[in-house]
Amino acid sequence: MAETATHEHAAHHTSTGLSNNKLGMWLFLGSECLLFGGLISTYMLYRGRVGTGPTPSQVFDIPFTSVSSFVLLMSSLTMVLAVSAAHNKDDRATTLWLTITALLGATFVGGQVYEFTAMYNEGLGFSTSLFASSFYTLTGFHGVHVTVGIIMLMSLVGILNKSKVPGSRAETVEMIGLYWHFVDVVWIVIFTLIYLIPV
């Protein structure tokens, strides 16, 4: 991750002509597929095992989650616009889009915190049932990924504000963008499989 800044011009010297950082990031994302796959499978196996606790349909608030899913989806748009601006060496626009992306991400995480609180108040604690544990684990892992993304976005905004050479961090922006979109596609899967398909 943090290696991003260093090989800005290295891409031209590699055997494939591709940037080390981008190759590394894509490999990492390929690996992450198996992480989320495992968590999703665990949830799928245990979603019906509610014990004496509430069932998924009792605690899920589909309209609310639909809105926060939409927010996260739109953050992918603002992210891709940031990448676009970075490649056009427009650091002002990049900073703006990155900030908006981070805000949308924060809205999503805020929504998740609200959702978790509401569920907890309805009697769904972390260890209430297998459904509860696997649901909180899966969505919690996703939430942590989004949070890490927000931290990276904000750090990047800070770095860009001090940067003297416009566009010099374009590849870093692109890398964080890849990570951000990945977190978004994971949510696309989670939203459908976990929320929309009834048990």
């Binding site: 495992g38 665990t42 972390f126």
Partner: peptide, 28 residues
């Protein structure tokens, strides 16, 4: 590696945060 990561996290949550991922008595 990510697969064992998932398994180890589940185990840790079971041991430290009272989850029941592998507890037959809890229906796992």
């Amino acid at each position: 590696m990510p697969v064992i990561t998932v398994a180890l996290f589940l185990l840790m949550f079971q041991r430290n945060f009272d989850a029941t991922f592998f507890d037959v008595a809890a229906g796992a």
